[in-house]
Simulated assay, not measured.
Amino acid sequence: MRIIVSIDESTTIGKRDAFLAALAYSNLHQEMELADQLLKRVKVHDSGLYVTTAMSKTDQGGTGSSRFIRDRADLQLVRRARAWIAVLHELGADGPNDPLFRALTVKGGLRSYPAKRERGKKMRPG
């Protein structure tokens, strides 16, 4: 929790990192699961998030599992999710099949990659 509290959420990178850390903490996601998460698989509600993990270490077939994660005052998942999704919208990266988490430049813009990159627009795990 100290890591989440120490993040400067006034920046684009901080909004991403705070939401990523809170989601990882609340749902015990592994790095690869977060890096591969798509925007359409996270539904934001006033009381929490409904998250579908499409593929994990134990679900290589990608049948997926869904879970509602109730918001907590210390994690503020809903506020952080809405702030990050608003950033994605401003950057034009909020399509349903776009990655939920994106690599950013130092100034907070989208990092661009070669078209033939294996992971496409997804962040690297870790």
Rank of each mutant, 00 (worst) to 15 (best):
Ser26Ile: 02
Thr63Gly: 04
Ile69Lys: 00
Lys107Met: 07
Arg119Leu: 14
Arg117Lys: 11
Asp8Met: 01
Arg111Gly: 01
Leu104Pro: 13
Ile7His: 04
Phe101Ser: 05
His29Asn: 10
Leu104Glu: 12
Ser56Arg: 01
Tyr25Gly: 00
Met123Gly: 02
Ala73Asp: 15
Ala93Ile: 10
Met1Ser: 13
Pro96Phe: 02
Tyr50Gln: 14
Gly62Trp: 01
Val78Gly: 04
Glu31Asp: 14
Gly109Cys: 04
Gln76Lys: 10
Gln60Glu: 14
Leu39Asp: 10
Arg82Thr: 14
Arg67Val: 13
Asp36Trp: 02
Leu39Lys: 02
Lys40Pro: 04
Val5Tyr: 02
Asp74Cys: 01
Leu28Lys: 04
Gly92Lys: 03
Leu49Asp: 09
Tyr50Val: 08
Arg79Lys: 09
Thr12Arg: 08
Val51Thr: 10
Val106Lys: 10
Arg102Gly: 02
Lys122Trp: 05
Asp59Phe: 01
Tyr50Phe: 11
Pro125Val: 00
Gln76Ala: 12
Met1Pro: 13
His45Leu: 07
Leu34Cys: 10
Ala93His: 09
Asp98Gly: 05
Tyr25Val: 08
Leu77Asn: 06
Leu100Ile: 06
Trp84Ala: 03
Met55His: 07
Ser47Glu: 15
Ala35Gly: 09
Asn27Leu: 06
Lys57Ile: 08
Gly109Arg: 07
Ser10Glu: 14
Met32Leu: 06
Arg117Leu: 12
Leu38His: 11
Gly126Pro: 01
Gln76Cys: 09
Val44Tyr: 03
Glu9Ile: 05
Ser65Gln: 07
Thr12Glu: 09
Leu77Cys: 03
Lys121Phe: 08
Asn27Tyr: 11
Lys122Asn: 12
Leu23Glu: 10
Arg119Ser: 14
Thr12Asn: 11
Thr12Leu: 00
Ser66Ala: 13
Phe68Arg: 00
Gly64Cys: 01
Ile13Asn: 04
Met32Cys: 03
Pro96Val: 06
Ala103Tyr: 02
Asp74Val: 10
Ala115Asn: 12
Ile13Glu: 08
Val78Trp: 01
Gly120Met: 07
Leu77Pro: 06
Arg124Ser: 15
Leu20Ser: 06
Leu28Gly: 10
Ser47Ala: 10
Val42Ala: 00
